[in-house]
Design a binder for these strands. Sequence first.
DNA 1: CTGTTAGCGCATTCAG
DNA 2: CTGAATGCGCTAACAG
Lengths: 342, 342
Amino acid sequence: MTRKSTSRRPTSRDVAELAGVSQTTVSHVINDKQGGNIRISDETRRKVWEAVEALNYRPITAARTLRTDRSNLLAIIVPHMRTPFQPLLAAAIQEEAEKEDLEVIIYHTHDELQRERETVDALLSRGVDGLITQTYLLSTEDLDRLVQADIAVVIYGTNPTHPFVDNIMHDEVKAAEEVVSHLMKQGHRRIATIAGPQTTWGGRLRKQGYLNALKAHGLPIEDELIRETEFKRGNGAKAMGELLSLPEPPTAVFAANDILAVYALLYAIDSGLSVPDDVAIVGFDDIPEATIVRPSLTTVHKDIDLLGTTAVQMLIERMNSEELLPSRQKTLDCEIIYRESA
Amino acid sequence: MTRKSTSRRPTSRDVAELAGVSQTTVSHVINDKQGGNIRISDETRRKVWEAVEALNYRPITAARTLRTDRSNLLAIIVPHMRTPFQPLLAAAIQEEAEKEDLEVIIYHTHDELQRERETVDALLSRGVDGLITQTYLLSTEDLDRLVQADIAVVIYGTNPTHPFVDNIMHDEVKAAEEVVSHLMKQGHRRIATIAGPQTTWGGRLRKQGYLNALKAHGLPIEDELIRETEFKRGNGAKAMGELLSLPEPPTAVFAANDILAVYALLYAIDSGLSVPDDVAIVGFDDIPEATIVRPSLTTVHKDIDLLGTTAVQMLIERMNSEELLPSRQKTLDCEIIYRESA
DNA sequence: CTGTTAGCGCATTCAG
DNA sequence: CTGAATGCGCTAACAG
């Protein structure tokens, strides 16, 4: 019968013994401590590393964390991973974190407040060093608990909500305004929007941009041209169907994200309409599907890699700062990608 | 000037003091220990929980891990997150892990052997309880180190490589064979494949299925109809271009994954050909783009959620087993999704 | 039914 | 230039 854990794994003390030095010295060598009254001969270093190799020694993170109160863990809280955007952001964050020798732990919330609360507890227990999240449900009290526990926090996509938490946003209002203005420049005067849920920042900001554009060009705001709906596959087609069966249908549609836009576009195509001639369509996000659909989708692109690296950099600064940094804001620009659909 | 860490965070000793019990009792209550010679009165429990609430106490994972040698961490190693498949698998694993109170830590390798080696070290240091990975570069020695360290390992997508590691595979050979046979049933006799790299399991197995199907139907294997290429966007179009400019071009194409298939399809469409009339196309994976492209793509679907839950379940069994379980194999079926492209 | 004691593996004073 | 001693916060024997 094969038992587990046959041989105890080596500790720094074992390394010390084999190298013929003290455990302290091993610790100093491993962590490459220099200066002050710590000075280790090259000869000693060599012996230590040899022993490390010989025993296949690897320091135990838990012990180190317990001692130093640093876990080398960067947490990200994701509302839901099954979107095109989140994994890309997670990947970008991960790649940047790697460079800083941080490991990434991911928490899901499924958009549920209850889970966000639990997640905060988990972060606290786990003693993560930092948190990057796009969540919009964390209360000021939750953030307070994290800040109290010396956890650096950077939030993406919401307005500032805590005096010691950083925020990053994309200038979505401006981008939405621009892309709608683009439709006007093409001569469209009856422009609808398939807006996202007004409970989300994305939904709100993009609708605001739409309204701004109409106002700027002196066009009337007509309720029947504004369809608010969740960011879900089916909803794009449904909203498009409703818009097209209006007595006086729009000649152009601004969808608040590409999922909605793509399905709206497919609905139009599959109904035998021509895009952009019968109806022009623009989206928001620039997901991979935007390139693949025919006609390809004119949309708003965010540099997700830049977002990820920026977030990690802000986090690192906050982590490394001795003092508690006051909240900082950073706004990133979006880029309009002109394709065939408008 | 605002200093960090103003007040020390409460420990179980603080809770004990406030509740008027010993620190041991707090531990017992928190971990809901019962039976044996441990028996705690309801009254005591209540007092302890009250103190926990009052102090906002949360146990420190690092200390617990150090003591118990269990980190409650499930690691996944991902070759690269920027694919449609990986995030979905990660999400499925995460959701299942959550139910088992495991937290998920993600490591990237960018398909580099060097990083896989480093990642193994990280897993060892971090003391993760289990690992699920799709990687194909981990050597038997690497796996040995993990097994020695009592880390449960489940590998997806490769053949068994270690006597104490579990494997899950999809029956990709059979699925590829079926989908190619489907093309034959449609009357196609000249069927090409845009095969994936033969260094990957996916690439190899799917090509094998293609060859099997040809043989089973007594069709000749023609080298010019077999294009091996990396799973990258551009390559699908390129391979399709080459195939279509053959003296006698194929009437149907089996692409080894949907990325290749979609771009092959777009190439055909954009060249003015009609799909499936001029050339039929089938893919593999059923990524979201497969639904969106027109004509929509006939392809092979894998139940990723099932894969995720199965992997986690196998892992849990292995983690909870006192003895070292011998390697187990599990094969999951694929499903062919018939759409418009073939 | 509850408390005392010990130690997980490491990084860090402080003494030499 | 190096080593001895200490304790991070927790769980698990064992003793009452």
